[in-house]
Design a binder for these strands. Structure first.
Lengths: 129, 129
DNA sequence: CCTAGTGTTATATTTATCTATTACAATATA
DNA sequence: TATATTGTAATAGATAAATATAACACTAGG
């Protein structure tokens, strides 16, 4: 995994877990890889992984069972709320950033549409996502 | 100015300058406030301001004149290219983030439209931008 | 009971960032 | 020619983040 060196790694790992939960790669109740394995996969120190997971555990997104492993919560209600929050937060961030570049509401929509169209063209010869 | 404690301050100051150039608050050739004044305004150290400006100077966005001040480049061509780059970068970031939350291209557009509509309602009793 | 695998915690070291402070270099102006 | 204002640079100290390493705590399985 590639990290943005402008943002703490532990924070990016948190986002990574959210991401996998949203895409379904991590289902409710699913067992995560062992922390030492995650550290290897992400090419990062165990303590850094642990810091990210600790925060996710503290907020209830993950459940830790000493000696067994870390698991995604089975509380579907909590996951649904989390998803809503993540989406709304990202929409707000995206809007603010574009609006901050002096784009009007209409320009934001149309330029995003244009970007997506152009992106489809650039990838139409591959079988990418 | 409020800073995100997850991102280096000097980096956020760079973005702040870009922002002001895009909105027209900083026109081509315009003189910036003195570095010591900027430090006061932003409530940060002079060295932190200097680090941000140094990078902007190195890339040609700003021009420094020792004893006189720092100025926005008068190279309109460079500014136009910068604007294009900033917008395309932000569109890509926004798209990737939302797409990463498992949203389809259509969902990205429609949810952004919904977000903007809802935002208008929430602010329709004020004279905010 | 022992061992392997799991999460958890602690210490020390390194690096990046930010700060405070001081000094130097160039320009404008009184 | 002074003096103030500007950008620039250097030093030293504080803090946060990440690392390497080691140890501890719990669980499962032979």
């Amino acid at each position: 995994m590639k990290f943005d060196d402008k943002v703490p790694i532990y924070y990016q790992i948190k986002q990574h877990v959210y991401h996998e939960m949203m895409t379904g790669a991590l289902q409710p109740g699913a067992k995560l890889p062992a922390v030492r394995q995650l550290a290897l996969d992400l090419t990062v120190n165990v303590n850094t992984v642990q810091r990210a997971l600790s925060e996710l555990i503290a907020e209830g997104t993950l459940v830790s069972q000493r000696g067994k492993g870390n698991f995604v919560t089975s509380d579907q209600e909590l996951i649904a709320r989390l998803k809503e929050t993540l989406i709304m937060t990202q929409l707000a961030v995206a809007y603010d950033q574009l609006h901050g570049l002096n784009m009007s509401d209409d320009e934001i929509i149309t330029s995003m549409q244009r970007y997506i169209k152009q992106r489809e063209v650039q990838t139409d010869d591959s079988i990418n996502d």
